[in-house]
């Protein structure tokens, strides 16, 4: 780009990371409040899309060198593995467990296997959105 829109870049840098942080919050809040893997994933994806939109493809590719197809795959793998864990203890596929543990700093915290499962969903959603958009965008050039 010939005249780099400085203002856009500055704002994007700040806003994108605020959105990313918020998406992480939404993801973790998911079990008890609105949010979760889908919503967190979509929001992270839109933050990244914003980055791609305001900077050019090459720059961001240098910064975020992910292969999104692999992100999808690892997300799926994570979700399936979470489901399989229960099977080793004689429970049906995808049985989720939870319990409360006293952790340092956080205090009494609920830990659940639904969280890694949700993380798998999160990864798939992020991977999918960016994969589609980037593939189409790269084909332009």
């Amino acid at each position: 780009m010939r005249n780099t829109p400085v203002q856009l870049h500055v704002i994007t840098r700040i806003v994108a990371f605020i959105i990313l942080a918020f998406s992480v919050f939404l993801f973790f809040a998911g079990h008890n409040n609105p949010g979760g893997g889908f919503i967190g994933g979509l929001m992270s994806a839109s933050a990244l899309v914003l980055l791609y939109l305001s900077f050019d493809l090459k720059t961001i590719k240098r910064v975020i060198p992910f292969n999104y197809a692999k992100v999808i795959a690892s997300g799926l793998l994570l979700a399936i593995l979470t489901g399989i864990v229960g099977m080793f203890f004689g429970f049906p596929f995808l049985t989720q467990f939870f319990d409360y543990f006293p952790l340092p700093i956080l205090g009494e915290t609920e830990l659940t296997t639904a969280l890694p499962f949700d993380l798998g969903i999160y990864l798939v959603v992020v991977g999918f959105t960016l994969l589609v958009i980037l593939t189409v965008a790269e084909d332009d050039n």
Binding site: F38, V125, F128, V132, T135, V136
Partner: peptide, 20 residues
């Protein structure tokens, strides 16, 4: 519906690319 929205998103994206 949440599931449906996400699936719909995927399908629409696919159709768009197909159209393209």
């Amino acid at each position: 519906i949440l599931t449906a929205i996400v699936i719909g998103f995927g399908i629409t994206a696919f159709m768009l690319v197909l159209a393209y």
